[in-house]
Write a protein that binds this DNA or RNA. Structure first.
Lengths: 187, 187
DNA sequence: CCACACTGTTTAATTTAATGATCACACGCG
DNA sequence: CGCGTGTGATCATTAAATTAAACAGTGTGG
């Protein structure tokens, strides 16, 4: 599932009608290297790739932006939701999840989460650029995001950037059910 | 607006409680190099960075996702959710929504939807590429997506591409509550 | 107290990327 | 043809990434 860096770089350059030498001038790298990279004869360092992409006016994150979307299954019975509860937690987390072999690529993931009294996810830090949101359906739960904490009850909601460290703790004495979503999936 | 590759890599590794050597084992690179990269003493090649990120289970594109806004509203009391019920529907739809003036840009929208008996959204078709998912919390509802229809109950879920025409109808005699999410916002 | 396992860092050798110049081909023009 | 200028690819050299092994620090337990 590798992206062909060389191929992609070449088409980006050609899309701007630049020659390897012109781009080399804009990028402060040599045309020879651009040639090598486009042929995948060398794997450029991040710093070098960044120089080249600067010349193209493209950011690294844009360069690596990928897209894919194929679907089939639409409806999911509750017993078909995939159990993805982390080992340490009291409670359960179930995901709306397509089993389709290798390429189950979605931009949205929906979770059913049930936290028993005392459940604690611990601090979590996801790398992925994503947003995470949820609505409390039943019970109460303490949600900590970054340095802010709050106890939420039925109907309350949260929405934050997934890269912020976050933590869920059921500090009450009844189970708590949360329906949450994040984008993109982090698995 | 460079992101600190080394620092970012380190926090990602630590978020998974991995030592440099453990990650090295998973990544097929040496622990020494991981040390160097984390200190920004070398700029890894794309292939090397990819190996390392493979060991962390994250993709290059995810890695380069840019840092963004931090200080924002995170928690939402139920009475603060914005009412966005379409005029014709029986029931209500409330959105987790930030009022912040101009730049309320999110990739995820979370909805609390309540359908009274007889409620019917009618056919809906959104032009833009997005995904829509939901989990039924209470009651039953008939969900039609494209040419497929199904009656879902508590705990059941759905997930589909927003470009498919879709429709929700409460054909029972009790209210139905659905928590749903879509990405990106469609308003 | 010493040995052991673990952490991250550093050093020296090797492999590889990156440079600057050259090569080879194509096109237009006198 | 013969020359100038453009393209991308290639060759030796240099600079840098990468390796493998050693170094230094922190517990932990016999």
């Amino acid at each position: 599932m590798d992206i062909d860096v060389g191929q992609r770089l070449r088409s980006l350059r050609e899309a701007q009608n630049l020659s390897q030498r012109q781009l080399a001038e804009l990028s402060s790298v040599t045309n020879g290297m651009i040639s090598m990279v486009e042929q995948n004869r060398t794997s450029p360092s991040i710093s070098s790739l960044k120089k080249i992409l600067d010349g193209l006016g493209i950011s690294i994150s844009e360069f690596f932006a990928v897209e894919a979307a194929m679907e089939e299954t639409i409806f999911f019975r509750h017993e078909d939701l995939r159990e993805i509860t982390p080992p340490m937690a009291k409670g359960e987390i179930k995901a709306v999840f397509k089993e389709v072999g290798d390429a189950a690529q979605h931009s949205l993931q929906m979770l059913y989460e049930r936290y028993e009294p005392g459940a604690d996810t611990g601090e979590d830090l996801y790398a992925h650029e994503a947003e995470e949101a949820g609505i409390i359906v039943e019970g109460h739960i303490e949600v900590t995001v970054g340095d802010r904490a709050q106890v939420l009850g039925p109907g309350d909601a949260y929405l934050f950037d997934s890269r912020l460290p976050h933590r869920f703790r059921n500090i009450g004495n009844a189970a708590c059910v949360v329906i949450s979503a994040c984008t993109p999936p982090t698995f």
